[in-house]
């Protein structure tokens, strides 16, 4: 069974409490239509499992198939440098059909980012490397397409609709709670 490598750490973009019962990790691509379809579902789950679950997003841009996927990933990292990763993540997915270089700059402006810094970071090879490292961790973790999800470090192979995902999350929560009472 494929496992998340490396495990979730402070290097990751995380929403929610790292001590939560469940950590859901998504390897995604900002230009992938399936990731776009999964976005509102994941958003709803994050809202509904507020106290119980943390969510992590890692980049897995399929750059040959999706010409703007890498740029979008780098743009989100550039936004992260100004503390706005999740805002950028949301805006890109919400406007996925308009994705392009110009659009990424417009999104950065709409988030009131310091544009000089943003444009610098957007071209910074270090940001590109950050995205590549996440892609590489995805390969080692057995990502076989996007989106790929991991629940508490174990690859989730079922479909990404709300019911299937939350069923698996509920199972992980009760498993975790049971092992905690035993200990």
């Amino acid at each position: 069974m494929a496992k998340l490598k490396p495990p979730v750490s402070e290097q990751d973009h995380m929403k929610g409490d790292p001590r939560a019962h469940v950590i859901l990790v998504e390897y995604g691509d900002f230009q992938c239509p399936h990731c776009g379809a999964a976005y509102p579902i994941v958003k709803q789950i994050v809202k509904d499992y507020k106290e119980k679950m943390a969510f992590v997003f890692r980049h897995f841009p399929l750059a040959e198939a999706h010409p703007f996927a890498q740029a979008a990933a780098v743009a989100s990292e550039a936004a992260a440098n100004q503390g706005k990763f999740w805002q950028m993540h949301a805006l890109i997915f919400e406007n996925q059909h308009l994705l392009g270089l110009e659009m990424l700059l417009q999104l950065a402006e709409s988030l009131k980012l310091d544009m000089k810094t943003f444009e610098h970071d957007f071209r910074d090879p270090k940001m590109f490397k950050k995205v590549e490292d996440q892609f590489e961790s995805g390969i080692m973790s057995g990502v076989n397409g996007t989106p790929s999800f991991y629940i508490n470090g174990i690859k989730y192979d079922d479909s990404y609709d709300y019911d299937s995902l939350t069923q698996a999350i509920d199972k992980a929560i009760s498993k975790n709670a049971a092992s905690k009472t035993k200990a």
Binding site: D29, C32, P33, H34, L62, A63, E64, A65, F135, E136, I139, N144, G145, T146
Partner: peptide, 16 residues
Amino acid sequence: PVCGDQMSLYNEMLHY
């Protein structure tokens, strides 16, 4: 028919 099918996936990994 899937997005990110096996061959496309390997295509992204050639330099690895």
